[in-house]
Design a protein around this nucleic acid. Structure first.
Length: 921
DNA sequence: AATCCGACAATTC
DNA sequence: GAATTGTCGGATT
């Protein structure tokens, strides 16, 4: 269960009639315990309670009691020896009217009316075994609000299916945004009288809910009508107490969906929450998920957590502002200048979602400004930071709507925090009419035109074509000559997973450049536009991005042109795993890259949160000079050819597990000649046994006479016909052959395509001539063993780690990027012989530990000393060939390798161009 | 004809 | 559940 589901379950439980016997079980069930766990507790087998309650080990001791005896019951629970013995973290007692509970770890207590216990949702969350509890507890309100809005949304769509269609979804989204605003406003005195909005709906709408939509529509119309015009607009007296809000929020269509009785009660339910606790930096991200079919009821899988947003914003510009604040000390003049500077900073998130980067940036800047005002002794001063300087582009309608709302709420909360509620209220309404969040495709827009750079004209895209076009003269951006910082977390989509529309976005952007764009990740588009933007504007840009644009092939595709000698990477966070509160988190590893026009000043690389000051950062995010490594079709060091293994593309039909092989041979012993041992990475590393059907053309007729083989070949044909790739479908009738056959029937030195990054060495292996290597292995056929020594070396590991792509953080080997590019000094026959000896020693050491698998042997903790020694000797011999001694560390290794690579490739390049010139002569 | 990559995916701990 | 660690095959060159 996720947090939202738990919230719903305990809310339901509090509303049900209290059941003295059942309550403890219902309570545990609401927190996501499995029915088998509950059953065992009921049966008493796992129930350790000595008081007739329910005690779940490592969790909670619950007791229901007679009316009025709750406090005594809780004391008894705490005093019970079994509570401590079972390591219960909570005790809870209730009589159905009143409830008391204590968190035994923190000593925190809750005492409330029974029906209100769901209000302490955050308190009880550790019971759900959610690991990021602290964060969730901090955001308990936002989760509750999301949960309840979610129910309302679903119920309204049930009642008004039309509102779920593409044409009406904008109206639905606008409606939800208006509601959220009203809930916030009624709890913060923006509307006179706490809870007046919800209360008015409750009083004025009939209990059967039939006119609820009309009541709400009148309220919305009121908020869109200036006081002077209300009489003429026929606003009824009961609505007149509501203020004029406007700010586009209530303009336009004021249709309201029809309410069922349930929807009406849900609405009142959402309204009863205390919306002052709303946290706009995270709330929007949660709430936006309710409008998305796949993610409804989840906390959005792609929203960026606050710590990760700060990883972008702090080095991007906030650290600098804070340094300047510190330098200004109490100097009134310097403080004033800084305040002026801050007021003109634009923050631009071209993939803003519900605006959490913008909100956090706003709040952080307000904090700095408040400190300036404090030091200047102007604490009540109106903020000079306009929220319209926080621009965004968002493709989806609902988040765009929410982003604007979140900024409005953030502005109000900051005013309350720094200037007091009276001043905050005085200036809050009516909302400004500006439209500063654009709902459109960021890769198809001219960013400069949304930014009013240098005070030139402004071109804005209306967010709703039904409304009259914006009067551009009304828009005052207050940032002439200011800086612009671009930030955000745009979508990542690998080149082979992009939709046709996304492909075409990328094509449009890059086709005029010399970049080969077809293998780029979708996010490259944002970096591309940002770098163009930064050339024209005083500012910088940083995004959270998939780490793959800073690895392998993409480095050489994107960055040389993007940096183009006038841009630089000025800070970077190295790989970290994506994480937020969502249950189904996106599975991706990210980096953060900050770019700007070249200028002096420090650069920083962050590993986890450790900051290292450097003078340069290359696009691999390493502290080395820029090196761009393209695919090389042959070894720059004259090493023998390395091929990819053979790719089946068989839908599993040509491949047999050991038991399948046994069954087949029991029935058809004559099939043995068509079977071979098959090796991919897993088979090599973990010693997994697998076999494949391998039939030469001339054997096909005989092989087909074996029913099972014939059946399997049919399966291959079927699988290939299903493929979206034409090249695969074409080979459907060639079912007895792997789709891609490189080489076989020879002894081979093999390297796994993907393997764990935790090993000190890439675990290469040797296959005999009977075995088949799949496309999960690279192979050098009939190898000289010194090649095994090279590929098994620390130097090679370091090189491949740096220049090949990765699968998240895994080593993803490549012949053309890692092997062919590996720079090796010219080897003498003696060198080769020495290395061959080292290779043999490694292989012997492995054999000595038979039947341990490679995974066992190369486990950092458990690597046997003799094998380790053999590798050390191998490294020693090889490194002496490079520099006459051992390298001190991996940095020195990589430095040498980059250096050597540059020398070796520039000399072959000059040799080639010499050749060309000679040819021309 | 040959290879990089996956807002991953399957399996284990 | 989160920690570990490599399948499979498409799209592109």
């Amino acid at each position: 269960m996720n947090a939202i589901e738990i919230e719903q379950a305990i809310t339901d439980l509090a509303e049900q009639p209290f059941d003295f016997i059942e309550f403890p079980y219902q309570f545990l069930e609401a927190f996501g315990n499995k029915s088998t766990t509950i059953k065992r507790l009921r049966a008493g087998t796992s129930n350790k309670s000595d008081l007739g309650g329910v005690l779940q080990t490592n969790n909670i001791h619950l007791l229901t009691c007679e009316t009025g005896k709750v406090t005594q019951a809780l004391a008894a629970l705490k005093a019970s020896p079994v509570t401590a013995k079972a390591k219960a973290k909570f005790v809870l007692a209730t009589d159905g009217f009143y409830l008391e509970a204590e968190d035994l770890t923190s000593g925190e207590t809750v005492a409330c009316a029974f029906k209100d216990f769901p209000d302490h949702f955050g308190f009880f969350l550790p019971l759900a075994g959610i690991s990021t509890v602290r964060q969730i507890s901090e955001n308990a309100f936002d989760i509750r609000a999301t949960s309840r809005l979610n129910r309302l949304y679903v119920e309204l769509l049930k009642e008004n299916p039309i509102w779920g269609t593409a044409e009406r979804s904008h109206d639905m989204n606008k409606f939800m945004a208006r509601l959220i605003f009203c809930f916030f406003a009624e709890d913060t005195d923006i509307f006179v009288g706490k809870g007046r909005f919800t209360e008015t709906i409750e009083q004025m709408s009939l209990r059967d809910s039939s006119n609820t939509h009309e009541v709400i529509a009148i309220l919305f119309r009121t908020m869109n009508t200036n006081r002077k015009e209300r009489a003429a607009a026929g606003i009824p007296r009961w609505a007149d107490e509501f203020p004029y809000v406007n700010g586009r929020l209530f303009s336009g269509n004021d249709d309201v969906p029809r309410f069922s009785k349930i929807a009406r009660s849900y609405l009142l339910h959402v309204g009863s929450l205390d919306w002052t606790k709303i946290n706009p930096d995270i709330f929007g991200s949660m709430i936006q998920a309710i409008a998305e079919d796949e993610e409804r009821g989840e906390l959005g899988m792609h929203y960026t957590s606050v710590p990760n947003i700060l990883k972008v914003l702090n080095p991007l510009f906030l650290d600098d502002l804070r340094t300047k604040l510190e330098e200004a000390d109490d100097n009134a003049r310097a403080l004033l200048n800084l305040r002026k500077r801050i007021a003109r900073i634009r923050i631009f998130d071209p993939a803003c979602g519900s605006g959490n980067f913008l909100v956090i940036a706003y709040k952080e800047m307000r904090a700095i400004e408040a400190e300036i005002n404090r030091r200047r002794d102007e604490p009540d001063r109106k903020s000079e930071i306009p929220i319209t300087n926080f621009r965004g582009i968002e493709l989806r309608d609902f988040p765009a709507e929410i982003a604007r709302l979140a900024l409005v709420i953030a502005e109000y909360q900051c005013d309350v925090l720094y200037r007091g509620q009276r001043l905050a209220l005085a200036e809050f309404l009516p909302l400004r009419y500006d439209n500063w969040i654009t709902c459109d495709n960021a890769l198809r827009l001219d960013w400069l035109s949304l930014m009013d750079v240098g005070g030139s004209g402004v071109k804005l895209v209306s967010d709703n074509l039904l409304q009259s076009p914006l009067n551009q003269a009304e828009i005052d951006f207050e940032n002439e000559g200011g800086e612009t910082y671009i930030c955000g977390n745009p979508p990542y989509v690998g080149s082979s997973k992009q939709s046709a529309a996304q492909k075409s976005d990328i094509q449009k952007l890059f086709e005029a450049s010399n970049i080969k764009y077809k293998n780029l990740d979708y996010i490259s588009g944002w970096f591309w536009l940002a770098s163009k933007f930064c050339k024209d504007v005083n500012g910088a840009a940083a995004f959270v991005t998939t780490n793959s644009i800073c690895q392998g092939e993409q480095v050489n595709l994107l960055w040389p042109t993007l940096l183009n000698k006038n841009m630089e990477i000025y800070f970077a966070h190295t790989s970290f795993k994506w994480s937020n509160l969502a249950k189904n988190k996106a599975g991706v590893t990210c980096v953060i890259v900050g770019i700007r026009a070249i200028k002096p000043g420090s650069k920083f690389i962050y590993f986890d949160n450790i900051r290292k000051e450097v003078t340069r950062i290359n696009p691999y995010l390493l502290d080395f000079a820029d090196v761009f490594i393209p695919r090389h079709s042959e070894s720059i060091s004259s090493l023998p050819k390395m091929l990819k293994g053979n790719q089946p593309t068989d839908g599993g039909n040509l491949i047999l597990a050991p038991w399948e092989k046994r069954d087949l041979l029991r029935r058809n012993p004559e099939a043995e000649i068509y079977l071979r041992k098959l090796y991919g990475s897993k088979e090599l590393i973990d010693g997994v046994d697998r076999y494949c059907i391998w039939i030469e053309d001339y054997e096909l007729k005989d092989a087909r006479s074996i029913t099972e083989i014939s059946r399997r070949l049919g399966g291959v044909t079927q699988a290939r016909l299903q493929s979206p790739a034409q090249s695969t479908r074409k080979r459907a009738n060639d079912a007895h052959r792997f789709i891609q056959i490189q080489d076989y029937g020879k002894r081979a030195m093999v390297v796994p395509e993907v393997s764990s990054e935790k090993r000190e060495y890439i675990p290469c292996g040797i296959l005999d001539e009977e075995s088949i290597a799949t496309n999960k292995l690279f192979a050098v056929y009939e190898p000289d063993l010194y090649v095994f020594a090279l590929c098994s070396s620390k130097l090679h590991r370091v090189w491949v780690e740096a220049v090949c792509g990765k699968l998240e953080e895994r080593i993803s080997y490549s012949n053309v990027l890692g092997y062919n590019t590996f720079p090796v000094p010219e080897l003498t026959e003696k060198n080769k012989a020495d290395l061959t000896r080292c290779a043999e020693d490694i292989l012997l050491a492995r054999e000595h530990h038979f039947p341990a698998t490679i995974a066992d042997l190369y486990d950092q903790e458990k690597m046997p000393p003799d094998l380790r020694m053999a590798h050390e000797r191998n490294d020693e011999v090889l490194e002496r060939i490079y520099i006459g001694r051992r390298f001190k560390n991996n940095t020195e290794r990589l430095e040498k390798l980059f250096d050597l690579y540059t020398k070796m490739t520039s000399s072959t390049a000059s040799a080639k161009s010499k050749k060309r010139m000679m040819g021309a002569n």
